[in-house]
Design a protein around this nucleic acid. Sequence first.
DNA 1: AGTTTATGTCAGCCTTGTTGACTTTCCAAG
DNA 2: CTTGGAAAGTCAACAAGGCTGACATAAACT
Lengths: 171, 171
Amino acid sequence: MADRNAANVMGRGESLLFLTDDQLRRGIEAMFFAYRGFTADPDRILQDYGYGRAHHRAIHFINRSPGTTVNNLLSILGVTKQSLNRVLRTLVEDGLVDSRVGTRDKRERHLFLTPKGAALERELSEAQRSRMRDAYRAAGPEAVAGFRTVLEQMMNLEMRRQYMDGGDGAR
Amino acid sequence: MADRNAANVMGRGESLLFLTDDQLRRGIEAMFFAYRGFTADPDRILQDYGYGRAHHRAIHFINRSPGTTVNNLLSILGVTKQSLNRVLRTLVEDGLVDSRVGTRDKRERHLFLTPKGAALERELSEAQRSRMRDAYRAAGPEAVAGFRTVLEQMMNLEMRRQYMDGGDGAR
DNA sequence: AGTTTATGTCAGCCTTGTTGACTTTCCAAG
DNA sequence: CTTGGAAAGTCAACAAGGCTGACATAAACT
């Protein structure tokens, strides 16, 4: 019974794919190393500026959604406002992020990257894109399509979880 | 020129795949959320034991390579011996890890999981496998094959980097 | 005998997460 | 117009888990 520990993963009835626990274990390990590699370049760049990953995350999501509020960011990142505030404060002080009082609701702060902030964002994301392109190139286009599909699924599972049991955003 | 920012990823001449910077950005984001989801279940479990991710990593790699030495673990994990030692000490004290003096080289300590440690390892990895199976099931077998290919590539790129510029393992 | 290696340990620092308590601002319902 | 509560910010204190530097010990190597 070599299939004692097999995970039966099947598509829409078309075909079958058996993955043993050991194959899954290698996938788990690959995730660990891949993610580490994935953050390595930005980490090095950030060090020159005296920033950490927390700053990177804030910069990334402000770039993605310019004008987002602090509360928005809070629920996306899943950290406490105290943690985020510490990071945001330094970014504003250093002139990378612009925090504008809301016009409709003046309690809210809308966050934007300054040109300086946008420049750092480009530097960081270009490093990650470059690494991702390298992996994509080596794997080939079909593998890339599958990779993106699975990753989207993993992301969706996570977003659902976040929404279900902790979207309070104001701990 | 919609392709101004396109990354041309091509296979072995078979087909072409253009990925814009925006598509790559979504991939980057998916990595972030996927990894977070990926560590969420273990993190919850570990909390009950008073452990963190560092303990999980040690347990994982000791399980993968029973009898591995401290130095081995150090170079795999890429942390300082002080950091690893703190974690290892508690695991040994709590009876999850067995540290045996080497027979050939008595300076070395060979690390093994005790039954108790192996039990926790199973609990942790089962949570991760389960989540991975969910994503695989939702994505379908063809996507899974591609996913594994790309992830292996990303891992390989990382292992190569680690070997090149910092495999000193004794900071 | 002297050096290098493997490991462990002490002390102290940094980042980034946490909780709890408190204030200020200000929208909106009563 | 007052007041409740949401949004934002601040202070203090703490923990995990990274880091550096210094030092100790035993074993192995030369």
